[in-house]
Simulated scan of single mutants.
Amino acid sequence: MMESTGIYHLPLLHYLVKRGLVCHAVNPVRIKHHIQPSALRKSKIDIKGMADRLFPELSKNTSVFTRSILHLLLQAPSCKLIRSLKEKKIARILQEASGNKATLSAKEILGWAKGSIGINDTGLEIELQSKIRRLLPYDVRVRGDRRGHRRGVA
């Protein structure tokens, strides 16, 4: 992947393609809104606000911006949906996302979900999932650490 720079990227692009490499020239103007810090910051604020309404106990007890919690919210974005999961399923989501380094137990999260005062709002759940999908490819560490990039979530 390279930035399209008028005509200046073309010699390198042709050189790499001739050698069998798959290359893409990207117009920076078209992707600008995807990487703007202000847009990313707004997405983080939106995610935190939605999580606070759908499952306030979760955001009160842990950061919603850890990889494991983001992946959990991607699969079950509210206390209602988390309550419907088996403890083993929650544990598997946390372990897969954190590389077996999950600091929270599935039992803790399930307990918070069972006693939660979070709202039921299917539209908000869908919006939260959408925002998380957009956030994950760019910044999964999210705590101000912009070094952690990873491939997108299917």
Results as ranks from 00 to 15, higher is better:
7 I>R: 13
107 K>R: 15
96 E>S: 04
89 K>I: 00
118 G>F: 05
54 L>P: 03
146 R>V: 15
141 R>F: 14
18 K>N: 09
131 K>H: 13
25 A>C: 03
139 D>M: 10
150 R>F: 12
17 V>Y: 10
18 K>Q: 08
58 L>P: 01
36 Q>T: 12
124 L>K: 11
7 I>Q: 09
102 A>F: 04
122 T>F: 05
120 N>Q: 12
109 I>G: 06
145 D>P: 02
47 I>Y: 00
150 R>T: 11
84 S>Y: 08
143 R>H: 15
153 V>D: 10
56 P>I: 02
127 E>Y: 02
51 A>H: 09
57 E>Q: 01
74 L>H: 07
142 V>W: 13
23 C>P: 07
34 H>K: 06
121 D>A: 08
61 N>I: 00
55 F>A: 00
69 I>C: 05
128 L>Q: 08
126 I>A: 08
149 H>Q: 14
123 G>Q: 06
149 H>T: 14
48 K>A: 05
138 Y>P: 03
13 L>T: 02
112 W>I: 01
29 V>G: 02
14 H>I: 07
133 R>I: 00
54 L>G: 02
102 A>S: 14
72 L>Y: 07
90 I>V: 15
51 A>E: 11
114 K>W: 01
11 P>L: 07
60 K>C: 01
26 V>M: 08
104 L>T: 11
111 G>P: 13
85 L>Y: 04
48 K>E: 08
108 E>H: 10
80 K>F: 00
31 I>Y: 10
